[in-house]
Design a protein around this nucleic acid. Structure first.
Lengths: 207, 207
DNA sequence: AGCACAATTGACCGGTCGGCCAATTAATTC
DNA sequence: GAATTAATTGGCCGACCGGTCAATTGTGCT
């Protein structure tokens, strides 16, 4: 049976409802009443557990971001600096974002709010990615005439930006096919460009 | 002397103030009163000229976006499908965004609000870019085994994403140097990757 | 049983919100 | 110069905002 009082479940319900609202409409256009309605609790209870709307938003971000960092670090740990590592990482990251669209929106809200939190969690992920690229450079898998940190940024950009703007751009360019096909085609395209560039391949020397 | 009444100047003052507020804080966290204060007019005057807060935001976006589209189409027209066209376009676009940071924020707000307006203006720009790439493929300057529309997206992503997240990422990765240097280094890196890819160059055959 | 405490509720607060309206003032038209 | 129209103002409204508070209810401890 369900306990008549379960503060932990209540907290979770509030966090879930808040996350949904904040990610959809942002801090300013989300009211505490709306969150309370969705979580089926009273407004006062939200203030009791979280203090204020701003603090609630912080906790929502912390929770989701901590989970993100955890999974990313798992990914980095289990990967080894072998051939194809970067290709696999790009694929993993792309499909991770695909499965977590709310994360992309959350990071975007944080950008617009000039949020400086979550630094410590994200730093570990970014540093891990940088280190992986540096190792790839050392074993000759990755060109070594670029700063691994900026290379990592390009890596992140081509994946994240897709999930930010795929709907807008696809409707403008009248790109056909199912969303699934579009994601797949973009992934293949951006993989080619990321690894080989847009310049035509030099013709193989055929003596 | 200045006219005691100048509705056109008033409209412009309101639009300028509104743009500043909306871009900084978004629709939900900007109040009409704040815009009125900044524009040095009364709140009622804003409703007189624009009807509602939402309509004002629409006009702000329209105005800025129209200017953007105009400049981009100028760029596209004056460029010819010669060697180095794509390189020059990438540089132009990068420095255009660098000079117009508010545009990046505006597009991002529109993404979060799932704004479907401004389609017609942007479509022309995107189609122009696609056509330019297609021509580059025909004359052999650009690899032709990828859809030009997705290639264009990668092009946009690596430029736009930088201006969205450079501050956050640079502070996390403790990238040193002035903002100017950072922009320059990133530009060089992403240019290399975009054109040549991250894989090491094949050693030139030296017979 | 009784106590202490946390969870939960509903009533309520001052303030701000977007928007409306009637009155005033300046420019335009005839 | 009177009439008309548009720009501009200040006052006002009901709704909703985030947040507080006192009271109630369930839970666990002793």
């Amino acid at each position: 049976m369900t306990a008549r009082r379960d503060p932990e479940a209540t907290r979770t319900a509030i966090l879930d409802a808040a996350e949904e609202c904040f990610i959809a409409r942002g801090l300013g256009e989300t009211s505490v009443s709306a969150i309370a309605r969705k979580a089926k609790v009273t407004k006062s209870l939200i203030h009791h557990h979280f203090g204020s709307k701003a603090k609630l938003w912080e906790e929502v971000k912390q929770r989701r971001f901590a989970e993100y960092a955890e999974r990313q670090l798992e990914m980095l740990e289990q990967s080894e600096p072998e051939a194809g590592l970067l290709k696999e990482s790009l694929s993993l990251y792309f499909h991770f974002l695909k499965a977590n669209p709310s994360l992309v929106r959350m990071v975007t809200w944080m950008y617009l709010e000039e949020d400086e939190e979550c630094i410590d969690m994200n730093r570990a992920v970014l540093e891990g990615g940088t280190e992986a690229i540096r190792q790839g450079q050392e074993i000759g898998q990755i060109r070594d005439d670029v700063d691994p940190r900026f290379l990592l940024f390009v890596f992140l950009a081509i994946a994240e930006h897709w999930f930010q703007f795929r709907n807008t751009v696809c409707s403008h360019l009248e790109i056909d096919g199912s969303p699934e096909e579009r994601d797949q085609t973009y992934f293949e395209t951006m993989t080619k460009i990321f690894f080989e560039g847009v310049l035509p391949r030099e013709p193989k020397p055929e003596p």
